[in-house]
Simulated scan of single mutants.
Amino acid sequence: MIIGLGSDLCNIERIQASLDRFGARFEQRVFTEVELARAARRPFTRAGTLAKRFAAKEAFSKAVGTGFRDGVFMRDIGVVNAASGAPTLALTGGAKARLDALTPPGHGARIHLTMTDDHPWAQALVVIEAYPDAIE
């Protein structure tokens, strides 16, 4: 069953402006080391790479119904790749706690994430699915 749905549209030029104005302070406040390392490998599309991840964080915060309050912080939401290569989210801190609280007893949670960009826009969609734990 679907327990959360969120989407976000982000302007890549706005992210570039924040990078230009605030530099490392903005990067460290918003992005994980894994996300920054991926963006560093893409110097010509760095802002777009980070904008997609920014949108994914916003989409997750909407999917869990909190926005960035109640202990949910941007750095607690990290975009990673599953073994298949598909993007997904790695959660820590308040973001993980909120997802755990939202997940019904006897269920696990699976996060589905899709991201895209077409300058000047980046978009992300998050679907959170609850599935019954295996009965042993």
Results as ranks from 00 to 15, higher is better:
Glu58Gly: 02
Arg110Ala: 12
Ala56Arg: 09
Leu19Asn: 06
Val80Ala: 02
Arg38Cys: 06
His112Ile: 12
Arg42Gln: 15
Ala17Gly: 08
Ala95Cys: 05
Phe68Gln: 10
Ala59Gln: 10
Thr116Asn: 12
Thr32His: 14
Lys62Asp: 02
Gly85Pro: 03
Ser61Glu: 02
Ile15Lys: 03
Gly4Tyr: 04
His112Cys: 02
Ser84Leu: 00
Asp100Leu: 14
Gly85Cys: 01
Ala130Asn: 04
Ala39Thr: 12
Leu125Asn: 03
Leu9Ile: 15
Gly85Thr: 08
Glu33Ile: 07
Arg46Ala: 12
Gly108Ile: 09
Ala59Gly: 09
Ala24Gln: 14
Ala130Gln: 01
Val34Asp: 14
Arg29Trp: 13
Gly48Cys: 12
Arg25Ile: 07
Ile135Asp: 11
Pro105Ile: 03
Arg41Ala: 14
Gln16Leu: 04
Ile3Asp: 09
Phe31Trp: 02
Leu9Lys: 06
Ala101Trp: 03
Gly93Asp: 10
Ile128Asp: 02
Ala55His: 08
Pro43Ile: 07
Val80Glu: 11
Ala90Thr: 03
Arg21Cys: 05
Ser84Gln: 02
Arg46Met: 07
Val64Gly: 03
Gly48Asn: 04
Ser7Val: 15
Ala56Gly: 03
Phe31Tyr: 15
Met1Leu: 12
Arg14Val: 05
Pro132Ala: 14
Glu129Cys: 09
Asp8Thr: 05
Pro105Met: 07
